[in-house]
Amino acid sequence: MNWLIDFFGNAANWSGSDGIPTRILEHLEFSAAAFLIAAVIAAPLGLLIGHTGRGAFIVVVSANAARALPTLGLLVLVVLLIGVGTVLPVLIPLVVLAVPPILVNTYEGVRGVDADLRDAAYGMGLRGRQVLFKVLTPSALPLILLGLRLSAIQVVSTASVAAFVGLGGLGRFIIDGLATKTYSDVIGGAVLIALLALAVQLGFTLLNRVVVSPGVRQVR
């Protein structure tokens, strides 16, 4: 508890380029960029693969690879290979790790839609694309959102580890605190990242309430 008071009570921690507000903004900035890039790649791909049924093996491979690949190793290797200095080399592993949860869950969501529902949509005269966007996507929305949530949390988490290879953000408090044995910074940083992760979790729970059709929600 004393560590928390030391960290949050220290006025110097609240201002400047290494202050808490700056670090939170940095963390959000990198995370949002990586997450949006991943979502733009993975969501349409997942919808397409789920709808056409072609390329399902990509989904399986990416799901397994993402789980087995060690985050830290990937980060360190890519940054060493491409070179330190810019944000790009750190962004690449963040995006790579953020894609699979969205891809897998979007695919599963579309695949899992009741076949009767799909047939009914075709029977009513909807075209392939209309079926995908007007029937399959809304029905699969809970799973798609789950994928987006898991991915966002993965990004927030990986971005903290990325402080080790020189990225700013909240991970800096942990990494620098460990290096200088300032445990109040380590614990303070950990608490801030935890709060950020929980905020993301909560945000998606609320989003779920708003965007998922009540009819779909009742079935679950």
């Binding site: 560590w3 949390i153 927030v156 988490s157 990986t158 903290s160 580890v161 991970g171 942990i174 460990l178 445990y183 380590v186 614990i187 940083g189 950990a190 990242i193 935890a194 992760a197 929980l198 993301v200 979790q201």
Partner: peptide
């Protein structure tokens, strides 16, 4: 469990370090 799962591993490691 959902809350625990959303915590980054680095966060839990740091907290348990103390």
């Amino acid at each position: 469990m959902n809350v625990v799962y959303s915590l980054p591993s680095l966060v839990l490691f740091s907290i348990f370090l103390s």
